[in-house]
Write a protein that binds this DNA or RNA. Structure first.
Lengths: 182, 182
DNA sequence: GGATGGGTGTACAGATCTGTTTCTTTTTAT
DNA sequence: ATAAAAAGAAACAGATCTGTACACCCATCC
């Protein structure tokens, strides 16, 4: 099996886009870091924008299937099933090169300058909210609470960039417990 | 009173940095939009980094004094005093060129590439958390809830970039009410 | 045993970005 | 009124960025 150039490019690009940002990461850097020739990059992706879109789309699908798998495992477990994504935040925030939520970072950088990219970020968040909505519904909680859980989830990722994530996660977990069990 | 060039530059820069991002906003654009000559810009600010720092510092002070003034007005009003900053989010999220939280955007773009800017964003968040901590304490609530309120506040700003802010704010307000009144 | 397709390497075009230089003009203070 | 300070205009240096052109390598397949 030959080295899958396309995947390697997307891996490198995703890491750099996430860590350093989209505008700050040049094509040359992705080329140098991945070791793939620039010609090859432009044979696989029509432009930097196309690469960004491909990276975000793949990342979104990865997150979705991971969350869905976990939700599958915890089906019927009530509160535990709702809390699971928040418990995972501990690990996410502790990762090397952690830099918040990739989709929020993309939304911020391309809010008004690149509608397709911004739309992709919005779609990811939409999916997240609907996912939480369904989870809450299936476990017998008020599904409208998805409108609280989503900001809280994103807020923890956001605050953990500049502060200790541990107390934020801890307070969020106990708050969710208190709110849903009434 | 002559047009204060320095303030005009910072006004223009802040608007562009906020709307389009820091890396995406060039000096030339700030120059053109403000009408101030580039020579003058570099007479007031040693570099783009220095301009960014000045803009963030000024914005942080503006936010702080605004929140403190409001807190002063609502002294002793209990829950209402805690909720006030969250109620203001309605207006903030509806503004033209709204793009989340300026300090989080800065933290994301400069997380690993520019420690001074990242530190300034961290200091702003630190202040916010301590401010909420003090508010909670003064009104007789558990001050540790600041570790919940801060992510929630930032999360609403973050989610409102790609979704309707109204239900997020509404759910947050009722959640805070429910959590603190126990 | 060539043709084909994917990959490499390098140089380059053209745009843009930060920051500087030089010179002129306007404003302000004494 | 005149000196000094502030601002303006425009060109430019040097770096970097996206994207392309061109020549070459090398495996696989027919």
């Amino acid at each position: 099996m030959p080295a899958p150039r396309r995947e390697l490019l997307m891996d490198t690009a995703e890491q750099l886009f996430y860590r350093d940002g989209f505008h700050a990461t040049g094509i040359d850097r992705i080329q140098a870091e991945s070791g793939v020739a620039k010609t090859t990059l432009y044979k696989h992706f029509a432009s930097k924008d196309a690469l960004i879109l491909a990276v975000l789309e793949r990342a979104s699908m990865r997150v979705r299937s991971s969350l869905q798998q976990q939700a599958q495992r915890l089906r019927g477990k009530g509160l535990e099933r709702i809390l699971a994504p928040f418990e995972d935040l501990q690990g996410v925030c502790g990762e090397d090169d952690f830099n918040g939520c990739l989709f929020n970072n993309a939304a911020a950088e391309f809010m008004y300058s690149n509608p397709p990219i911004h739309a992709l970020a919005r779609e990811h968040m939409d999916w997240m909210r609907q996912f939480l909505h369904q989870l809450l519904e299936e476990e017998g909680f008020d599904p409208q609470q998805a409108w609280l859980l989503l900001p809280l989830y994103e807020g923890v990722l956001t605050v953990a960039r500049v502060q200790d994530s541990e107390p934020a996660i801890k307070q969020s977990l106990t708050a969710i417990r208190a709110l849903l069990q009434t």
